[in-house]
Simulated assay, not measured.
Amino acid sequence: MKTLIHVLASASLALAASTASALDIQPYTPQALSAAQQAGKPVALHFHADWCPTCRAQEKVFKGLKPDTSLDLRLLVVDYDKERALKQSLKVRTQSTLIVYRGDKETARLAGETDEASLRAALKSAL
């Protein structure tokens, strides 16, 4: 009987862990940003260029943060070279820029930052 209880308890914990939210990294689309902002949800934009070493370092940090259940938000990866109108409207002047929102309110903005603690703090600013 104790074994069955332990199996059921373990299964319950595994299910709870699998349903916990974590950092969700997706490609940018205007629809994804608009939906998150209209719903008042936390969302971040990472202006990324494939040729940028700082962007690649940031990407590595963000991928390492993916399983962190305290970061329940979506990170939208914006193609720095293609999304010119978005860059202009948000006054983004450099690749490797991270802008974090809670709904449509900007809560943090970093450019060129690769420190994990700083990037985590910026993401948490919207939670």
Score class of each variant (00 low, 15 high):
14 A>Y: 08
14 A>C: 12
15 L>G: 10
15 L>R: 12
16 A>G: 10
16 A>W: 11
16 A>K: 09
16 A>M: 14
17 A>E: 09
17 A>L: 14
18 S>K: 14
21 S>A: 13
22 A>F: 02
22 A>Y: 02
23 L>R: 00
23 L>E: 01
23 L>M: 10
27 P>I: 13
28 Y>E: 03
28 Y>N: 05
28 Y>T: 06
30 P>G: 10
32 A>F: 01
32 A>T: 02
33 L>Y: 03
34 S>N: 15
34 S>G: 08
34 S>Q: 15
35 A>W: 07
35 A>S: 13
38 Q>M: 12
38 Q>H: 12
38 Q>E: 14
39 A>K: 04
39 A>N: 08
40 G>Y: 09
41 K>A: 12
42 P>R: 01
42 P>N: 04
43 V>I: 11
43 V>K: 02
44 A>Q: 03
44 A>T: 05
45 L>D: 01
45 L>G: 02
46 H>W: 07
46 H>Q: 13
47 F>I: 01
47 F>R: 00
49 A>L: 05
50 D>E: 14
51 W>H: 11
52 C>L: 03
52 C>Y: 01
53 P>D: 08
54 T>C: 05
55 C>E: 04
55 C>D: 05
55 C>Q: 04
56 R>C: 08
57 A>S: 11
58 Q>G: 05
58 Q>H: 11
58 Q>R: 12
59 E>C: 06
59 E>K: 10
60 K>W: 07
61 V>G: 08
61 V>P: 05
61 V>K: 10
61 V>L: 08
63 K>L: 13
63 K>Q: 15
63 K>T: 13
64 G>Y: 07
65 L>E: 00
66 K>N: 06
66 K>A: 11
67 P>N: 11
67 P>V: 07
70 S>E: 15
70 S>T: 15
70 S>K: 15
